[in-house]
Amino acid sequence: MANQTAARFVLALILPALWLTPGCQRSDRNPQDNAAFSQPVRSNLVSAVSYPLYYLTGQLLEGTPVKVDLIAPPAGASDQWTPDQQQIETLQKSDLIIANGPGAPFAKWMVRVSLPESRVVPTTDNFSLEEFIMVKDHRVVHRHGPEGEHSHPFMVSETWLDPAMAKKQAGEIATALASSYPEMGDRFQQNLQQLNGSLDGLTERFEMIPTGSVITATPRLKFLTRAAGLPDTHLLWFDLPEESLWQTGGEQAFLDRVKESGSRCILFDTDPPNWLKERLEQLGYPVHSLDSFSQGGLPAGGADFMQVMENNLQILQDSLSR
């Protein structure tokens, strides 16, 4: 520091002789300087924001040193769950954050935390427009802004319930992994082929589902019913009906909604309360519960994605054969 100061003083002494020298030197940037930023240091950690994406990523990472972490709400958490500080730190240090894309937004908590956006992998980007499912909210009508009374359509997020869509998502994940870990690209390709084989097998099982139609408690099961080729009359029971409201018009609203459906069975992706289950069965609508992974967390009972999907198929088949 002292040397630098002294050098400046000496330079200041000789500057009077140099002051007419033009001071501007044109300089060119070296694009190589940005290579480090474009290929950041790796932590060999990948995060997934739902269990199906976690499963698909885990299958692709088989036999590699890269780990996958699941960041999702615990069982029973509210829809408005936000990750804690430790989970946010995990996300921030992950090389990739595997998520759905804007056409099928899942993990709404992602808008409430600061993420390294360039490392978020939207796995539904290779879907064609018609492969997404948009549901018009026939129930909620409100008014704000200049457009008067209206309701908002919303996009169904549980894309993985259709194995063909899950296969596409697996392809996107494999591409992102190969881009981040190019030296493991061959391994990812092998794993992808194996995974695709399993998902194709599941798709074939879907094709064997008998014809019919179903009623679903929420549109969350729409990817599953579409994959099975089943016409689906959906209800909007995101919050299950309350008993008091059911008696004062809720039941009639339900009957009005389902009367045009030829189906006599209702598919839930949550467990309905006993009173509702009993009442629906009394009305002639037996209840069947599937798993849509809508909470995002690990499935109950230690089952994996393929087992849950097999189970879903079995329940669907049983409900249609009754």
Binding site: R8, F9, A12, L13, L15, P16
Partner: peptide, 13 residues
């Protein structure tokens, strides 16, 4: 020159 050097030094800093 000494005065200029001192002043320039200050400006530089």
């Amino acid at each position: 020159s000494v005065l200029v050097a001192l002043a320039v030094w200050g400006v530089w800093l």
